[in-house]
Write a protein that binds this DNA or RNA. Structure first.
Lengths: 150, 150
DNA sequence: TATAAATAAGATAAAATAGTCTTATAACTT
DNA sequence: AAGTTATAAGACTATTTTATCTTATTTATA
């Protein structure tokens, strides 16, 4: 599995938020219902993203979570690193600590190339751009295919 | 993490075996010491690979494990699928079951491309070829960098 | 035939990840 | 000020992955 479940949930939530109006807080309850993710579990993941300043939260009635300016201008790569850490993009494919260009494992060069392409995929578009494209192309986000870009 | 720890161990063992003479069984004890992997854990992983006919085992003194013909002609992709299953190469990056070309998630096309490049990386060379290249280029395989292609 | 050397298999334990539940805290509403 | 609505935080549980330990079973050899 490329990304942890926490990370996948975090990405779904990020895209969900990006599809919403910039300036309103969306409650975690709404998100967890809309994305069919456990409320408390999602809460924790969002806390990681808020503490990375990619989202901000507000307590009380009409409170919730929204993307910060930084978050909207960020890419999925930033979200992934905030949740799963940077290891995927730094480590040897065979997990060999000393692997490097001067002492390469059999996969070293190929993996460097491949993991760069993963990284590029994740940083190709900002969340704002993903949201814009989503509205045009009517992407789906939910498991039942019913997500509305609104 | 792209590959599970079991899978990484399995790949290391596969490459280790590929670097050895075709026709002799190598004991798991030797491998686990040489690769610094827990003996019993490695045993179970190798059982998965033998039951996929990528390796064969022999009990008793001078027994051990060796690659089958099929195994030598296989690629790391076959080893990966035998251990981690095919999910990495079939699933949506956001884990959305209904995601497909007609109902794509925001990452669908990019991920299809990227995961294909992962797959191509893993099936570029057979184990025999990796071993050959390893001897020429003196790749390393152990954590301490001391692996000998012999 | 007995012993030793090896894998096979099953039980158990430990650690990491995923998920739930409860209580605290903040902010709005009346 | 009291009640309500929301996130924050911590404890707890469940599941999966990783790792270990013990007991078979197979095979060679003395």
């Amino acid at each position: 599995m490329l990304l942890s479940k926490s990370c996948v949930y975090g990405l779904r939530a990020s895209i969900y938020l990006a599809s919403k109006k910039d300036d309103t807080f969306i409650s975690i309850k709404e998100m967890s219902a809309g994305l069919n993710i456990s409320f408390h579990f999602l809460t924790k993941i969002l806390q990681q993203l808020t503490s990375a300043n990619l989202m901000e939260s507000y307590k009380g009635p009409n409170g919730g979570i929204k993307l910060t300016k930084k978050g909207r201008d960020s890419t999925l790569l930033d979200m992934v690193i905030a949740i799963d850490g940077p290891e995927l993009f730094t480590q040897c494919a065979l997990g060999l600590p000393g692997c490097g260009s001067k002492d390469p494992c059999p996969l070293h060069d190929s993996w460097l190339e491949t993991r760069t392409s993963i990284q590029e995929m994740l940083e190709r578009t900002t969340l704002d751009e993903i949201a814009k494209e989503g509205k045009e192309k009517q992407f789906r986000l939910m498991e039942d295919g019913n997500f509305q870009w609104s």
